[in-house]
Amino acid sequence: MGYAAMKGSLMVLIGILAVALASAVAAAGTTGERVVPAVFVLGDSTLDVGNNNHLPGKGVPRANVPFYGIDFPGGPKATGRFSNGYNVADFIAKNLGFERSPVAYLVLKSRNYLIPSALTRGVSYASAGAGILDSTIEFVPCLIDL
């Protein structure tokens, strides 16, 4: 299969998943209870909830300074999120019946709590700097190899 065909198939799959997610979010917003048992987040800095703060290396983008959490509950403290408050995954998770998006994979792994949390709540694999370009893909293996 050629690159163009693969890219087209991927875009169709992403479109189907987006429609399914939008339907689930709309349904959950009306009932106020969990529609799904767990949420698994994949993405870049717009969804990162602290994975990058645990990645080794000097060139890894990090959100470990207080202004990133200035509007997050609990006051101005470093949250690991590349936003000043809630991110998109938090709003989607909230509409699916969760308090906010799941905890970062590397945080759960360091606490040996990965399996229980993944089953009951989900996990966030999002990593700032991750992308589909060769110049940004270098951060994703760091999450997978650990």
Rank of each mutant, 00 (worst) to 15 (best):
L13W: 05
V36A: 12
D71P: 00
L143D: 06
P141W: 05
E138F: 10
V36R: 04
G8Q: 15
N84Y: 10
L119A: 09
Y105H: 12
V60K: 07
A22H: 06
S124I: 01
L13A: 15
I132F: 13
Y113H: 14
S101R: 08
G131S: 14
G131W: 00
D48K: 05
R34T: 01
V35C: 01
K109C: 00
V41G: 07
A22I: 08
V140C: 02
A104Q: 02
R100E: 10
D44Y: 04
S135T: 13
A22C: 02
M11S: 12
S124F: 01
V36L: 01
D44R: 06
K77N: 10
F40I: 14
A104C: 03
A128P: 05
G32H: 11
D145H: 05
I14A: 14
T46F: 07
K77F: 02
P73S: 01
V60A: 06
S83D: 08
G122S: 03
G122W: 03
T46Y: 10
I132T: 14
V19N: 05
L47R: 02
D134C: 07
L106N: 08
S83Y: 09
A5T: 14
F139Q: 04
A63F: 07
S110N: 11
S127W: 00
A128C: 06
G2F: 07
A26D: 02
L17Q: 12
M6H: 13
R100Q: 13
A89R: 04
D71N: 13
T136V: 02
P61D: 09
R62H: 06
N53D: 14
K7R: 15
K58V: 10
S135R: 15
S23P: 00
P73C: 11
K77I: 11
P73T: 07
V49W: 01
V60Y: 04
L114E: 12
D48A: 01
A78M: 03
V88E: 11
I137Q: 07
V36K: 08
N64R: 00
D48L: 00
F91Y: 15
P66D: 07
L17P: 00
A20M: 13
V103R: 12
G85M: 02
A89M: 06
G97Q: 12
A118C: 07
G50F: 05
A22E: 10
T120C: 04
R111F: 00
A4M: 09
V41Y: 06
N64W: 03
F40V: 09
V88D: 09
N87Q: 13
M1Q: 08
V36H: 00
G85A: 12
L119T: 09
Y113T: 12
